[in-house]
Simulated scan of single mutants.
Amino acid sequence: MTPPFPIRKECPPGACDCKRELLENDPQADLRVLRLTKEEEKRLLARIEAIGTYGELMRVGQRLEEQLGVTLKITPGPNEVRTMRGFAIELSPRPGLCRKTRQAVPAAIRRCLEAHPEIAFAILDAHDLFGRPE
């Protein structure tokens, strides 16, 4: 079955753990994740790095969910957050989502957080790490 939109080219055999064959073998599979071609991925990464507010970051996460069916999760790590590496940033694993994409998106978000520390503080605040009085 060929989808009516351009799809991402397959990774070389053994180079990726995306399990794309699960999508190709299932006629009812959700193929939205394959819309993220390499060119679109580059545009997404540039868009993420250009984010200036916490609200924009949340909207990009929401758009990833709507358009690709991929959930973006950004949480403070289990230990204290001293640098941007202290955040746990991950894309939900899905068949067809390339390993490189699962690494590139969190790296772009970290670069964004380093450029805009106020977004990092907003993430911490959203997870109630500043201890709001109730």
Rank of each mutant, 00 (worst) to 15 (best):
E39V: 15
E40V: 14
E40G: 12
E41F: 07
K42S: 15
K42H: 12
R43Q: 14
R43F: 10
L44N: 04
L44T: 02
L44R: 06
L45C: 10
L45T: 05
L45Y: 09
R47Q: 12
I48R: 00
I48T: 09
I48A: 02
E49P: 05
A50M: 06
A50E: 11
I51F: 02
I51R: 01
G52E: 13
G52F: 04
G52S: 15
T53Y: 05
Y54S: 13
Y54V: 12
G55K: 14
G55Y: 09
G55F: 10
E56N: 11
E56A: 15
E56P: 07
L57H: 03
L57K: 02
M58Q: 14
R59N: 10
R59W: 06
G61C: 10
Q62C: 08
Q62F: 10
R63K: 11
L64C: 06
L64W: 03
L64N: 04
L64A: 05
E66N: 09
Q67A: 08
Q67W: 08
L68N: 01
L68P: 00
L68F: 15
L68I: 07
G69H: 08
G69M: 08
G69N: 06
G69Y: 08
G69R: 07
V70A: 02
V70Q: 02
V70C: 03
T71P: 00
T71D: 02
T71Y: 04
T71C: 03
T71F: 05
K73P: 01
K73M: 12
T75I: 09
T75M: 06
P76R: 14
P76N: 09
P76K: 13
G77P: 07
G77R: 08
P78M: 09
P78A: 11
N79K: 14
N79D: 13
N79Q: 13
E80N: 11
V81A: 04
R82G: 12
R82D: 11
M84A: 07
M84S: 08
M84P: 02
R85I: 06
R85Q: 13
F87H: 01
F87M: 03
F87W: 02
F87K: 01
A88F: 04
A88W: 03
I89V: 10
I89F: 00
E90A: 07
L91C: 02
S92R: 06
P93T: 06
